[in-house]
Design a protein around this nucleic acid. Structure first.
Ligand code: FES
Ligand code: FES
Lengths: 137, 137
DNA sequence: TATTATTCATACCTGTTTGATATGATATAT
DNA sequence: ATATATCATATCAAACAGGTATGAATAATA
């Protein structure tokens, strides 16, 4: 299941994508429109900023804008930033690799082989640009 | 990420699938061979049994056997039994539906639409029979 | 029938994660 | 100056994950 963090993050990115560029949107506005707890949202926004998905403008009249074209942002990116690995098992994750304690030999592990295939088919689904996913019906 | 429960459950199913039918396999044997904590495994086995994936034979010389043909068992089934929903958001899950508190209108929610598509593409991957996934290389 | 090997059931425990809040500093347009 | 923002860190309660403890029930077999 997707964490609230990830869900809120995706909602935030979509919200920013909808606004005309140039005018920064404040955390308060996002929070009220998307029903996201204000302080929790601030945390998420900071995380998205440090990972260069959004830019912030400080001070009065400040706020946030996308740091890249929406066509270059995917659900996978957002999930990795706020939730960590997408892979279903740690020994397969590329960005967050970790060995499996209870498996004798990673090279011959059947579970690992199964999930390598799952991952290979799953990641492209999540890596599509949000502009392709978020179509008007 | 897959929980340990799910991983252990899948390992167990594969282990049983490998054994010639007829002779039940004890929890102890599974535990030792797959490096799964014994008592934890007992919990998982019970869960798999109540959901009719395996059958148990009590008493001395007892143990567990698959309750259906391996070609009728999928990763998705196992995951649903031990971990719950596969869908990334609750408002999409068929077996574990729950409304999203912070979304105004489920019918028009864009996140929901996006993840409905993700789900539609993801579930078939996980619903393939384990006999198809677990090939000898 | 006593023993042993096993499943079955329930309850409990501990550390981590999740979702969220509190407090306050810093920056900037007006 | 003041109001409006972001930025940073710390804290917290509840839920969850992973695992353990205790013991009852069942059945093969010596
Ligand atoms: S090595 Fe990772 S699942 Fe076996
Ligand atoms: S209704 Fe479930 S994500 Fe919006």
């Amino acid at each position: 299941m997707l964490s609230k963090r990830a869900k809120y993050a995706i909602k935030t990115i979509l919200f920013l994508k909808d606004r005309p560029e140039g005018k920064p949107i404040s955390a308060k506005v996002i929070s009220e429109n998307e029903n996201i707890p204000y302080k929790f949202l601030e945390n998420i926004l900071r995380e998205l900023r440090t990972h260069r998905l959004i830019k912030s403008i400080r001070g009065s009249e400040g706020g946030y804008v996308l740091a890249k074209d929406p066509s270059e942002i995917s659900i996978a990116q957002i999930m990795r930033i706020v939730d960590g690995p997408i892979a279903l098992i740690p020994c397969i994750s590329e960005k967050f690799y970790e060995a499996c304690a209870e498996c004798e030999d990673e090279q011959t592990c059947r579970i690992r082989k199964m999930f390598a295939e799952v991952r290979a088919e799953m990641v492209p689904i999540l890596e599509r640009p949000i502009t392709a996913m978020d179509k008007e019906a």
